[in-house]
Write a protein that binds this DNA or RNA. Structure first.
Length: 741
DNA sequence: TTTAGAGGTCTTTTT
DNA sequence: GACCTCTAAA
C-alpha cells in the first residue's frame, strides 16, 4: 500500500468521511452529481483494506456499467500496490457470470456457455414464432422479446406468469418464453437477464453455495443504486444476508434507466430492504462552475417526483451556457468543431472535450466533420464494434467451432459467404434437428448422409471445415484459428469482392474492421476469454488512446466528467424524445429531464448546447423541430442565445422564448405550435386539380406512398416541404409526390 | 431452389 | 438506413 495511505481521509469532507468511516451495517449515500461519490466508494474500499477489515477478495463492488467498473478498477489499482484481479469489482452481469462459471451445471448450463445479445435473442424468438405458427404481424417478435426481458427484470419465470385478461397475447408469450428458455439451454447460451436470474436460482436452490458467498463477501459496495432493478435488488439482498454490511451510493435525479426496469423506489425503500440504515447526503459539488450547477438545478426542479436537494459549490461562477440554433445538421457540426478548434488553440486537451447525443445515430454528421478537419475522436458505445455485421459473422464462426450445438451461430454463417444453402435447405435441417432433438450442425451432417442433392458438396465442405478448425483450435491459438477461418471460409475473399463491387463506406471499412478484430484478439489469452468478453462488453477494448475527443450518448456519459461539454440535438422530439413521451407521458418526460440534468452536470468548465431547427436529417427525410423545451427551462440570466441568420430572420427563437407555460401533452408542444403556425399561414384550396408531377404549387394537396396525404408548404428546387396529415413535416423530392384530385 | 432486387416497416437509451 | 418480406429471374 502506498505511503500516504494513512492520510487519505484528509482528502474527504466531513460528510464523505462519515460515509467512508461508517463501515458496518447498511449505509445509503444520497450523492448529487459531482459530489465525489466515486471517490467515496473507492476510498471506502481502501479504508476497509487499510483497517484490515476485509481482504481484497472479501469486498464486492458492484457498478452499473462496464465503464464505471473499469474506472473504479483503475482508481483502486492506482491506490494499491497489488494486482486487483482477485477483487470482485464489476457490473451485476459480469459478477454474476463469475459466480455462474463455478456452478453452471447446477442451473442446467454446460461449460463455456455463451452470452447472447439482443440480436440473437430476437432471431431465436422469431424462429420460435415460426415453428409454433404464432402470428407476428399484429404482435411483433420484438414485442415478445421486450416482454420477456421485462419479465426477467422482475424475476418472473414463465411458470409464474399468470395470463392477464387485459393483455391479449399472454398465452403466446408464456409459450414463447418457455420454449425460448428451453432452446437457450439446449444451445448452451444465456441472455443478460439469465446471468442474474440463474445466480438467484442458484442461491435459492443451494443453501451451501449461498452461505459460501454470503460468508465471502464481508462488505458490499454498490454504485448508481438508483438504476437498480428489482431482480438486481434481490440479488443484493441474498448476498447481504450474511454479514449485513452494505453501502449504496445513488442519486434519484440521475435515474435514467427506468426503461430497463430500474426502480427508484429501491432508494425509497432502502430502510425496509436493509436494516437500520445510516443515510448520508453529499450536496457539495466539486465538479462544475456555479453557473452550470445553478442551471442544472433549476432545470431538475421542474420535476415533481423527486426527493429534492439543492447542490452547492465553492467553485467560481464560470461562464454562461452558450446555446446556438442552426438551420441544418452540417451547420451544427461545423459550429461545434469550430469551437473545439478554439479550445485546442487555448491548450485544452482533447480528452477534456466531449460531444453528447440523445441518439447514437446522430454522431454521423459530427464524425464526417471531425474526419475532414483531422481531429481525432472516439465513439464510446453507439455503433458498437462487436455489433458490426462482419465482426458478428467472424464471432459466429468462432462460436460454432467452440460449440457445434450453437444453432444461432450456425444459422448466421451457414450461407455467409453464399454457398447456395438457402432457406429451404435450412428448413430441412431444422426439421431433422427437431425430430431427432439434435443440433443444426449434426442435422446438416445427417442430411448429407441421407440425401443426394446439388448442395450436398457445399454442406459437406462446411461441416468438414468446422471439424478441421476444431482441430486447429486445439493445437494453435485463437488468433491463428481466426486467420485460418478467414481464409478457408473464403470470408475475406467475399469481403474483398464486396469492396470492389459496392464501394460504399461500409463495405470499404469491413476489411479494416476485420484486421482490427484480429488485433483485438491479442488482448485475450484464449478463445474462451475472448468470447466471454464479447458477450458481456460489446465494446472494443483496443483503440483507447486518450488524446481524443469523446463522442457518446448522454446515457453513456453518466459518471464521467469533462471540462467542456457540447450537447447536440436539443430539439423537441429528439430531446425530449418523442417516443419516450408517447410511451410514458409525464413520467417519460421527467426521465428525459433527468437525462438533461445528467448531461449538464458532466461539465466542469463550460457547456454548449446546439439544436437544429429546420433540417434534422433522419430516416432519409428532413424533419422540422422546435428547440427543446429544456432550453426554455434553463435560467434566462445564465444562458446566452445565438442563432443562425436564417433563424434570426424568421424570429423562431423570439417566438419560442416568449412561451412560458408549456403543457405536458402527448404531442410535444413545440411540434404543435409549429403545425398551428404553418397551417394558419397557408390558405388551403382543397379542390384544386392539377396534373401529377408537374405544376405543383404551394398549398397543393398531395399523396406520397409512404407518408400518405399532405399539403405542400413550399417548394425549393426539386424538393417540396410537405405537411402530412399523419402529423409530420417532411422534405420530399417532388417526383415522389402525386396530386390527389 | 436460391438469389437479387423492390418495396415495405420501423427507427432511444444498455447489460 | 437497416432489416424484413415478397416477387421475379437465374
Amino acid at each position: 500500500m502506498s505511503e500516504n495511505s494513512n492520510n487519505y481521509l484528509n482528502f474527504l469532507n466531513k460528510q464523505q468521511r462519515k460515509a467512508v468511516e461508517n463501515t458496518f451495517g447498511a449505509t445509503l449515500i444520497l450523492a448529487g452529481a459531482g459530489s465525489g461519490k466515486t471517490r467515496v466508494l473507492t476510498f471506502k474500499l481502501l479504508h476497509l483494506l487499510v483497517k484490515k477489515l476485509a481482504s481484497p477478495n472479501q469486498i464486492l463492488a458492484v457498478t452499473f456499467t462496464n465503464k464505471a467498473a473499469a474506472e473504479m478498477k483503475s482508481r483502486v489499482s492506482n491506490m494499491l500496490n497489488f494486482p486487483i484481479d482477485k477483487m470482485w469489482i464489476g457490473t451485476f452481469h459480469s459478477l454474476s457470470l463469475k459466480i455462474l462459471k463455478s456452478h453452471y451445471e447446477k442451473v442446467g448450463l454446460k461449460k463455456n456457455f455463451i452470452i447472447i445479445d439482443a440480436d440473437d435473442q430476437l432471431k431465436l424468438i422469431k424462429k420460435i414464432c415460426e415453428i409454433e405458427k404464432i402470428d407476428t404481424k399484429e404482435v411483433s417478435a420484438k414485442y415478445y422479446q421486450i416482454a420477456i426481458d421485462r419479465l426477467k427484470n422482475k424475476g418472473i419465470s414463465y411458470k409464474e406468469l399468470k395470463p392477464n385478461k387485459y393483455r391479449q397475447n399472454d398465452e403466446e408469450l408464456i409459450k414463447i418464453y418457455k420454449i425460448y428458455q428451453e432452446e437457450l439451454l439446449r444451445i448452451n447460451c444465456a441472455d443478460f437477464g439469465d446471468l442474474i436470474l440463474f445466480c438467484i436460482k442458484l442461491f435459492k436452490k443451494d443453501e451451501e453455495i449461498l452461505k459460501k458467498y454470503q460468508k465471502l463477501f464481508k462488505f458490499i459496495l454498490v454504485d448508481e443504486y438508483q438504476d437498480i432493478n428489482l431482480i438486481q435488488q434481490r440479488w443484493l439482498e441474498y448476498l447481504y444476508g450474511g454479514n449485513k454490511n452494505i453501502c449504496c451510493v445513488g442519486d434519484d435525479d440521475q435515474s435514467i434507466y427506468s426503461w430497463r426496469g430500474a426502480d427508484v423506489s429501491n432508494l425509497l425503500n432502502f430502510d425496509k430492504n436493509f436494516s437500520k440504515p445510516l443515510i448520508i447526503r453529499l450536496e457539495q459539488n466539486y465538479r462544475s462552475t456555479k453557473n452550470i450547477l445553478e442551471s442544472a438545478s433549476t432545470l431538475i426542479e421542474k420535476n415533481k417526483g423527486r426527493y429534492g436537494k439543492r447542490l452547492w459549490s465553492e467553485n467560481k461562477e464560470g461562464e454562461k451556457i452558450i446555446i446556438n440554433g442552426f438551420w441544418e445538421t452540417k451547420e451544427e457540426a461545423t459550429f461545434v468543431t469550430d469551437k473545439i478548434e478554439n479550445l485546442i488553440s487555448n491548450k485544452t486537451p482533447l480528452s477534456e472535450i466531449a460531444i453528447l447525443f440523445r441518439v447514437a445515430a446522430h454522431t454521423r454528421s459530427f464524425e464526417e466533420r471531425l474526419i475532414s478537419i483531422g481531429l481525432s475522436y472516439k465513439i464510446i458505445g453507439g455503433f458498437r464494434f462487436y455489433e458490426r455485421k462482419e465482426i458478428k459473422d467472424m464471432i459466429a464462426y468462432l462460436r460454432l467451432v467452440n460449440n457445434q450445438s450453437d444453432d444461432l451461430a450456425f444459422e448466421r454463417i451457414i450461407n455467409v459467404p453464399k454457398r447456395g444453402i438457402g432457406k429451404t435447405t435450412l428448413n430441412k435441417f431444422n426439421l431433422i434437428a427437431r425430430k431427432k432433438n439434435i443440433s443444426l450442425f449434426d442435422a446438416a451432417r445427417e442430411f448429407i448422409s441421407i440425401t443426394n442433392t446439388k448442395t450436398n458438396n457445399e454442406i459437406f465442405n462446411f461441416v468438414q471445415n468446422i471439424l478441421n478448425w476444431k482441430k486447429i483450435k486445439e493445437k494453435f491459438d485463437h488468433i491463428e484459428l481466426s486467420k485460418v477461418i478467414l481464409e478457408d471460409s473464403k470470408y475475406l475473399q467475399y469481403l474483398e469482392k464486396e469492396e470492389k463491387n459496392l464501394k460504399t463506406p461500409e463495405s470499404l471499412s469491413r476489411i479494416d474492421n476485420i484486421n482490427e478484430f484480429l488485433e483485438s484478439l491479442k488482448d485475450f489469452e484464449n478463445l474462451d476469454g475472448f468470447l466471454e468478453h464479447v458477450g458481456l462488453v460489446m465494446e472494443n477494448i483496443t483503440n483507447t488512446s486518450n488524446e481524443t475527443i469523446s463522442l457518446m450518448t448522454m446515457h453513456g456519459s453518466k459518471g464521467l466528467e469533462f471540462d467542456y461539454i457540447f450537447l447536440a440535438g436539443w430539439e423537441e422530439g429528439v430531446f425530449p424524445s418523442q417516443k419516450s413521451i408517447e410511451e410514458s407521458g409525464n413520467k417519460g418526460l421527467e426521465e428525459e429531464r433527468r437525462l438533461a440534468y445528467v448531461a449538464l452536470t458532466r461539465a466542469k468548465q463550460k457547456v454548449f448546447i446546439t439544436y437544429v431547427n429546420q433540417n434534422r436529417y433522419s430516416y432519409a427525410s428532413h424533419d422540422y423541430n422546435m428547440p427543446s423545451r429544456f432550453i426554455n427551462e434553463l435560467p434566462k440570466e445564465l444562458i446566452e442565445l445565438n442563432d443562425s441568420s436564417y433563424l434570426a430572420d424568421n424570429n423562431f427563437l423570439d417566438e419560442f422564448i416568449k412561451l412560458e407555460n408549456i403543457s405536458d401533452d402527448l404531442i410535444t408542444p413545440g411540434r404543435k405550435r409549429l403545425l398551428k403556425k404553418q397551417k394558419e399561414e397557408i390558405d388551403w384550396d382543397i379542390n384544386q386539380d392539377i396534373d401529377a408531377y408537374s405544376n405543383l404549387n404551394e398549398g397543393d394537396r398531395v399523396f406520397h406512398q409512404k407518408f400518405g396525404y399532405g399539403r405542400i408548404l413550399y417548394i425549393e428546387g426539386d424538393k417540396a416541404e410537405v405537411d402530412f396529415e399523419k402529423g409530420s413535416i417532411k422534405k420530399i423530392f417532388i417526383k415522389f409526390l402525386k396530386v390527389n384530385p
